[in-house]
Design a protein around this nucleic acid. Sequence first.
DNA 1: CGGCTTGCTA
DNA 2: TAGCAAGCCG
Lengths: 269, 269
Amino acid sequence: MEGETNADTLPVLEARLEQAQLLKKVVDAIKDLVQDCNFDCNDSGIALQAMDNSHVALVSMMLKSESFSPFRCDRNIALGINLTSLQKVLRCAQNEDILTLKAEDAPDVVNMVFESADSDRLSEYDIKLMDIDQEHLGIPDTEYAATINMPSSEFQRICRDLTALSESVSIECTKEGVKFACNGDIGSGAVTLRSHTDVEKPDRNVEINLSEPVALTFSLKYLVNFCKASGLSDSVRLCLSNEVPLLVEYALSNNSYLRFYLAPKVSPL
Amino acid sequence: MEGETNADTLPVLEARLEQAQLLKKVVDAIKDLVQDCNFDCNDSGIALQAMDNSHVALVSMMLKSESFSPFRCDRNIALGINLTSLQKVLRCAQNEDILTLKAEDAPDVVNMVFESADSDRLSEYDIKLMDIDQEHLGIPDTEYAATINMPSSEFQRICRDLTALSESVSIECTKEGVKFACNGDIGSGAVTLRSHTDVEKPDRNVEINLSEPVALTFSLKYLVNFCKASGLSDSVRLCLSNEVPLLVEYALSNNSYLRFYLAPKVSPL
DNA sequence: CGGCTTGCTA
DNA sequence: TAGCAAGCCG
């Protein structure tokens, strides 16, 4: 009997994240693109997919169950959350806090508990949930013509720098390297990175895998936005094919990831 | 004869404060609550008492004569000062400056001199005084049902965090701990601190003295305002009794202090 | 890693 | 003028 009583109150979802920071950074990185979205929870982890308002960009986050310890999700549930509210609550976490997410079956709220490392402080928040029409998008598992791995800080720097000159950037990839170029009223700019690997400084590596040359143009505003995720990973992967959205991927531990897709600009040539 | 001449110009008040910073921080902390007020000077020190415009909060500052070196006040005088003016002048002090306050008998102005520590810089300001009707308030020396000592930074953090969710907070104190809880449109939040003392980190201690459990609700806006005084002291003391204003006290050296009182919200139960 | 100071935006 | 955010320093 005690078991049953316990089962009644046992949340359907219970996920403990050693670093509340991780979720905080994810939300900081996406909340300018997406206002409200579902966190889809099942036994494999917590996933989020959403398009930005103008339907040019798409965010796809996957936090695998292995990124939590422990992780339990007895039923598939979708937590519809306003990201501004979530961000407000995550700001209440201290940097080293441990976060536990909990939700009941058919929940009205998601419960978030922050524990200080030494456990003498416990903060608990409930965020009200909302019903969100899920436009779940099957993202085809594309074979990309070009894949670039580079330091995320370098990509961020390039995007920021070029923003000073233009609203869009062309990314041109050959076997030898990748060229970010733009053209604007005050002049033009281009940053070229050569493919190189250095065993001494692996975090500075630029690796290029290419089956055919690619050249595409993208909105810098969005790319700069994606780069807010730089704090999540030292490196970023860019995947391109002609006439297909760019994939910008930040890999996290345990095969978790944060991905952004961005449709190319139709070039007026 | 020379002595008499000298006596004519000798100020009635002369108070030298090693850290101009102290007064600057005090004024910064209270000037959003109070615009104009009297600094009551007598041989025991300089005191200030004022209610905020809405008569919900009360500020009480006491700078004991021992906090000055030297301190001399030959007659009781009240210096009616506009705090915005005072703040402007105090901004002219550099961080390590020494401040000397001077006033004549029945003064029109208060004179403030800032000396740099190495004495190669001297600034002098006169602030015009104003007549302020003194509504001097006898504050009863209450025995509180609950007294909490905690790091001032932690109290500040809690008040700021909860502001994201609501305009008011309930403070609930039991022997085991103190719980700050609130409820708002986006959800609810609660921070619980356990009473604990750690000889290693005394500045992290949370000490609770309680004669009976207390639960009261207060405006977060005011509490956040009080917390501007956090820079004056590493710890803060909260004193609560049911149906009595909360006392938030920042203790300074030499038994000087800055105290805030805040009437509880009438709970709509 | 945390706190503080400065600058920017509302 | 006040509140929020980013960058720098300890």
